[in-house]
Write a protein that binds this DNA or RNA. Structure first.
Length: 588
RNA sequence: GGGAUCGUAGUUCAGUUGGUUAGAACGCCGGCCUGUCACGCCGGAGGUCGCGAGUUCGAGUCUCGUCGGUCCCGCCA
């Protein structure tokens, strides 16, 4: 490298006029005018136009060979552009660099796609050539934003007296929760480490150690199926505090969000954020992470049909089930086919069916309207406060939460297709009072809804044995526009209570000792009351960046089948490596 | 584990009822052009229609399987 950079491409402006500079970067574009040759040189700070004129014959001939994505350094003089050649679209559009010397640092093959934001490329090609996609301005900006959010996070927590402490990546496999990624041990043949699903137990032990306020921006790993907002490895802002209750944790996080939104989006959030119990969220929105930017709330209508002759409703109610309705004025004109499609979709997400009727001219018509008695119709019109025209969608199922969830799915889908969502809104709220436990049909036992270290509400303790599903947890989720961006709880800090919860989870004393003995023991050595929370960092960046997929904010993401297309991971390994690890691969 | 959808030139796509030599735009290559800036003009190259079977006189098009991308349900303490 002969020519050493003196300035960034994007920083040059009129004030540099007359200066001799060296700029380095990639050829974004070239324009050959026969007598004049232009290139736009790009680095991560921006673009600047370089002019080559035939006056220097040697230089001109070299320049004419330049092609897109060649890496070059150019020495030249910054010069104001002729008045008729200003470019208002370009930050550096008032000047250009008159080239005096060029060094081609590296040529480039023709890239599989152009390094320009407006070029549309399928995601598999982008992922295979991730370094080229990352070279485009949009992803560069996203990664810079991610960096800024990380810095703002550190700044906030440092300022609040939190200590950033690292925890192990080689940890212990635990029975509860997500599937672990396992790492075989060579020195302890036949045994395995697990990658952390979160640093949960470590951060609690840091509280026992007296660190009082801990945070960490940390990688976590979960071997579960992927989604557009779920990757097998992801980043959390992990937080834990001692001598606190819910108010301290929520208040601190509200302050954090307020500062972050102010800094990143220039938006003033109003605190405290509204709180909604899990029960209310399910009843009103059919989701524990409702998008409250629009209405379209659920209406429970089961009681209207106490003595109905309509078999479907009658059977559901006989099983103490749930009947709920959505009133959708915007879909009043839906055709038979549109409703059929909606019904099919409802089945595809696990619903048993979808009933409908329409309200028009002051009366119910179509769909199931003919099965309703006059009384039922009148009561329904009153309950749903019908006026004007509307499509009414009804879900009935013996399983209350499932029925509500299906309606919640419908609510979100309709809001999207009918464009009921105001994209300018920023709605944050807490969902609180989650059930501590839920029954797992698969495992035939209660499992922790959050995690097994979550403290039950003291006033519900007496139900732990008699009605476990009614016990509420001291847990909270932070919801932003229908996305769960954070969740946490006040933890159990006494061994006896922890053992009692383990018993409810049917984790025997022996198993508890083997899996969590270290934590149980730690709780006996003066564990302070503590609680915490963890943010999905990637999700947070995704939402603040206004993108639709977590893959857009992760530097090297995996595909939906957890494959790295660029480096081709996962891959097979040598027999020798396997032997050292005492591993025998089962051949298909 | 289940469902939906997509796969045609380097890229994004079109391709009729199954019928001649599979097209367009951008990119690429060559030529021309002294003020362009997603330059312009002229010319050119470029195809395992994801892969494999099947139906058919004939398959990019229909059927089955398979691989891959994306989305959803389950799963994700």
């Amino acid at each position: 490298m002969r020519l050493k950079r003196t300035h960034k491409c994007g920083e040059l402006n009129k004030s540099h006029s007359g200066q001799s500079v060296v700029v380095s970067g990639w050829v974004n574009n070239w324009r050959d005018h026969g007598g004049l040759f232009f290139i736009d040189l790009r680095d991560r700070y921006g673009k600047v136009q370089i002019v080559f004129s035939p006056e220097d014959e040697n230089l001109y001939q070299v320049a004419k060979k330049l092609r897109t994505e060649y890496v070059v350094a150019v020495a030249g003089k910054v010069s104001p552009r002729p008045a008729e050649a200003l470019n208002k679209e370009l930050a550096t559009g008032e000047i250009e660099v008159l080239a005096e010397e060029i060094e081609i640092l590296n040529p480039s093959k023709t890239t599989p796609f152009e390094i320009k934001d407006y070029i549309d490329v399928s995601e598999d090609v982008r992922l295979k050539y991730r370094y080229l996609d990352l070279r485009r301005p949009r992803l560069q900006q996203t990664m810079l934003l991610r960096h800024q959010i990380a810095q703002a996070t550190r700044e906030f927590f440092n300022g609040e007296g939190f200590v950033e402490i690292e925890t192990p990546i080689l940890t212990k496999s635990t029975p509860e929760g997500a599937r672990d990624f396992l790492v075989p041990s060579r020195l302890q043949g036949g045994k395995f480490y697990a990658l952390p699903q979160s640093p949960q137990t470590y951060k609690q032990i840091l509280m026992v150690a007296g660190f009082d306020r801990y945070y960490q921006i940390v990688k976590c790993f979960r071997d579960e199926d992927l989604r557009k907002d779920r990757q097998p490895e992801f980043t959390q802002i992990d937080v834990e505090m001692s001598f606190v209750d819910e108010e301290d944790v929520l208040g601190t996080m509200e302050k954090f969000m307020k500062q972050l939104f102010q800094k990143v989006l220039g938006i003033e959030l109003v605190t405290p954020f509204p709180r909604m119990t899990y029960q209310e969220a399910m009843d009103r929105f059919g989701s524990d992470k409702p998008d409250t930017r629009f209405g379209l709330e659920l209406n429970e209508i089961g009681d209207i049909f106490k003595s109905t002759d309509f078999k479907v409703f009658k059977n559901v109610l006989a099983e103490n089930g749930y009947i709920g309705a959505l009133v959708v004025p915007e879909a009043a004109g839906y055709s038979r086919k549109q409703i059929d499609d909606l019904t099919a979709w409802t089945r595809s997400v696990g619903g048993s069916g979808l009933a409908h009727l329409k309200f028009a001219n002051g009366a119910l018509e179509g769909g199931i309207s003919k099965f309703l008695s006059e009384n039922e119709s009148r009561e329904l019109i009153g309950r749903l406060q019908l006026s004007g025209e509307a499509l009414i969608l009804v879900v009935a199922d013996p399983r209350r939460e499932l029925a509500q969830t299906i309606l919640g799915f419908l609510r979100n889908k309709l809001a999207e297709t009918l464009q009921l969502i105001d994209a300018g809104k920023h709605q944050l709220h807490w969902t609180v009072d989650f059930p501590l436990l839920e029954y797992s049909e698969e495992e035939k036992r209660y499992v922790a809804r959050h995690h097994p270290f979550t403290s039950p509400k003291l006033e519900d303790m007496h139900l732990l044995d008699s009605a476990p599903e009614q016990v509420r947890a001291r847990a909270y989720d932070l919801i932003y526009n229908g996305n769960e961006i954070s969740g946490g709880s006040i933890r159990i800090h006494r061994r006896d209570l922890q053992e009692q919860v383990f018993r409810s989870l049917k984790i025997g004393a022996e198993e508890a000792e083997a899996k969590f003995g270290f934590l149980l023991e730690a709780l006996e050595f003066g564990a302070p009351p503590h609680g915490g929370i963890a943010f999905g960092f990637d999700r947070l960046v995704m939402l603040l960046a206004g993108t639709n997929s977590i893959r857009d904010v992760i530097t090297f993401p995996k595909t939906a089948s957890a494959v790295g297309l660029m480096e081709q991971t996962p891959s097979r390994v040598d027999e020798k490596q396997l032997r050292e690890l005492y591993i025998n691969v089962i051949k298909e």
